[in-house]
Design a protein around this nucleic acid. Structure first.
Lengths: 279, 195
DNA sequence: ATCTTACTTTAGAAAGC
DNA sequence: GCTTTAAAAAGTAAGAT
């Protein structure tokens, strides 16, 4: 059975949505790798693959770099709605190459024209990639779960994926639960995009103790050389206001108060959340 | 005994070097002997020993105020000392009590100070936001902790800086590390004009 | 199976929650 | 009371390799 592992194609079956539009359910057969019977057919690439682990069952060929790009795009569009395809972890997002990835993107590029090379590399590919890839797949399904739970824009998911991947590459997940690292990366991404999501919200959504999310956040942030400015209390205003049903006028005044407080240097040491609430 | 800094009004500029007070000294010690912790725990009233929870026996001394963790290997950890010299006194007293419990111990213990925690007051209000923006090794997460963490490599110590100007220095192995560290800290703060 | 982490315990200060 | 910083001791747990 010739089959190759397709990265980021699928993730834990439990996290898969009912169906992936555009992909037709395949015949009743088991995946040689994970035994899942959830085999899908990919009309675009003319191949069938396991929906559970991403293993390609039959390759009917014709894969070119260009088609890979097309594939990415098509799947990406679907992903946006289903939250299934992990295309944003691909090289096209610069998530691999910029961090010394094991070479997935290069391998993909070799696939179309150098079949022989591919097969020779396949063994190596599988042994060195499997662990990381599975970790990544699981981590991303976690990310999707949490993201949809607290409703986050995709740019934040992508940033989170990027941070997570860098963390994995640097071996920062060792000794820590993958969940806490995902939560920490997500928190960092929110901070980076100035999307106010408190540690508590993320901790709750990810089932990781607040203390652990915070610790992991500080750890990976330090190790990856990421230095984020404390969230401005102003960023919390709109959220708090809508939650409390405050008028725009009140919000404006709150922001005004915050600006004054800032000039007077009286907020350092105080959590932005509390400051915003006070205002 | 006064806590130290009386309500000195915060000045705008820092002048002179602030007094540093050592709050805690942690040291490891060891003797060539194997300790029967059950026996020690059974005879010393000031000992706590719950091997299921932690492999060390906890001995609390009131005289030299300190807490000593005693391990079956003959190694110990002494914490709570307000000054380095107290470590030796505490370890000596610990060995004395252990002998009282019927456990033989010969020779003096070799002691190594592992960490010194000190506090001080710069006497100036600190703008932690500005410091975190300006100093590379500063990490400030007000949502998680009100203090700013600042690490310096030489001497290798870590500071916790607070808005009030109060600071904590930890990680030093000897008193001079604290003094040099504080001097270095002030030097850095002056560079970015926050003191 | 081994190596790597981290957690457990101890003390102390700081200041916000 | 909790949170953060550092450090040692000797176990356990979990993860990666």
């Amino acid at each position: 059975m010739k089959a190759k592992r397709v990265k980021h194609r699928a993730k834990a079956k439990t996290a898969w949505p009912k169906k992936a539009p555009g992909l037709i359910a395949g015949a009743v057969e088991k995946c040689p790798d994970c035994s899942s019977t959830d085999i899908k057919n990919d009309p675009k690439r003319a191949e069938r693959f396991c929906n559970g682990c991403g293993m390609v069952i039959e390759e009917k060929q014709i894969d070119t770099t260009q088609e890979w790009r097309a594939f990415d795009y098509e799947q990406k569009q679907k992903r946006d709605r289903t939250g299934s395809f992990l295309t944003y972890t691909r090289h096209d997002k610069g998530l691999s190459t910029s961090i010394g990835d094991q070479g997935f993107s290069d391998l993909y590029k070799l696939t179309p024209s150098k079949r022989a090379s591919f097969y020779r590399l396949k063994r190596w590919h599988r042994q060195v990639s499997t662990a990381t890839e599975r970790n990544l797949r699981y981590a991303l399904s976690e990310l999707d779960r949490i993201s949809s739970a607290i409703g986050l824009p995709k740019n934040i998911r992508e940033t989170t994926a990027l941070i997570y991947r860098k963390a994995v590459t640097k071996g920062l997940v060792r000794g820590r639960s993958m969940e806490s690292v995902v939560a920490a990366a997500l928190y960092a991404a929110c901070r980076k995009h100035n999307v106010p999501r408190t540690l508590d919200e993320i901790a709750e959504a990810s089932n990781v103790k607040k203390r652990e999310v915070g610790r992991t956040y500080r750890f990976i942030t330090r190790e990856l050389g990421i230095k984020l400015l404390p969230t401005s209390p102003v960023d919390y205003i709109s959220r708090f206001a809508s939650e409390l049903k405050l008028s725009p006028k009140v919000q404006e005044k709150a922001i005004e108060i915050l600006n004054k407080a800032n000039k007077k240097d009286l907020v350092s040491g105080r959590g932005p959340t509390g400051v915003a609430a006070a205002a | 005994m006064a806590k130290k800094a009386k309500p000195v009004s915060k000045k705008r500029k820092l002048i002179g070097k602030p007094k540093v007070r050592i709050e805690n000294v942690v040291a490891s010690a060891s003797v060539d002997a194997e300790f029967d912790l059950d026996k020690i725990a059974a005879t010393l009233p000031n000992a706590e020993y719950e091997p299921e929870q932690f492999p060390g026996l906890v001995l609390r001394l009131v005289d030299p105020k300190a807490a000593i963790l005693v391990f079956s290997s003959g190694k110990m950890v002494c914490t709570g000392a307000k000054e380095p010299k107290i470590i030796k006194l505490a370890i000596e007293k610990t060995l004395k009590q252990i002998r009282t419990a019927g456990v033989k111990v010969r020779g003096p213990a070799k002691i190594t100070i592992q960490n010194i925690v000190a506090s001080s007051d710069l006497g100036v209000e600190l703008n932690l936001d500005k410091i975190s923006f300006s100093l590379e090794n500063a990490e400030f997460e007000p949502e998680q902790f009100p203090g700013l963490v600042f690490r310096i490599a030489e001497p290798k110590v870590v500071f916790l800086l607070f808005r009030s100007g109060k600071i904590v220095c930890t990680g030093g192995k000897k008193p001079s590390d604290v003094d040099k560290g504080v001097a270095r800290l002030i030097q850095e703060l002056k560079k970015i004009k926050v003191v």
